[in-house]
Amino acid sequence: MSTPSLDKSSSPEPREPRPASGPAGSPSGGGVEPMVRAESVHKSFGAAHILKGIDLQVAPREVCCLIGPSGSGKSTFLRCINHLEQINAGRLWVDGVLIGYRQHGDKLYELRDREVAATRRDIGMVFQRFNLFPHMTALENVMEGPVQVKRESRAAARERAGALLERVGLADKAGSYPSQLSGGQQQRVAIARALAMEPKLMLFDEPTSALDPELVGDVLDVMRGLAEDGMTMIVVTHEMGFAREVGDSLVFMDDGVVVESGRPREVLADPQHERTRAFLSKVL
């Protein structure tokens, strides 16, 4: 199985179908920089050791689905990727940029608030509980990032926000406040809000877990569309159907380590590890 990055680098053509990724976590032999590269990432909260050496690579345009039992550290790992949590050991790069620290020679320096904020701009995040700004309308939610962070003009931001709401199928809800929207609609606004920053990487933390079953489909459809447009995505999910059809790679985490990873169909059909098998037997 060729490394996905290789055929990416040889073809500048963005229309190319996304490469079926090799087992995530395998070192990429190619010259192209993976979008996300984690090398033995550790994270502790006080005495609680949560992430125990995560190695993972995600190629550009790859959709990586992250599964695992509750409390295994999936959310913590996602939060480390955009520096909502600071890692304690290891290294983490997004698009070649070291996350959380600045390196000069062999010394690491902590980042200032402003520098952390700048690295987060290019990473979109979608939360389980939506976290829309309740005092703003859907349109204002989507405009907030471009206007306040990218200093875009209000007129330009409004136009783009309108287009993004249309893309997630909510053009008619632009003037509604989050409390007036269903969970599925709120989550789609949240996706539009993240996309408004034109991120190169999107992180989804169980985006459909707080939704009524009949609303899950709309959100997954939006995410599927994003994947088809070539967005690099890491998706923590319990939707195995989505992982199988849309995912390029599937990573199974348990107790702070990556237990198994590979093509979704293969991992789901023929898990190699006992822990993976035990987990899948419960959720499938």
């Binding site: 909502l84 608030d113 700048a118 990473i123 976290n131 700004f133 990032g145 306040q148 962070v149 993240a194």
Partner: peptide, 13 residues
């Protein structure tokens, strides 16, 4: 979660 969402958009403290 509001602070987190704002930080994730790239806002400073």
């Amino acid at each position: 979660g509001q602070t987190e969402a704002a930080h994730a958009l790239g806002m400073t403290g």
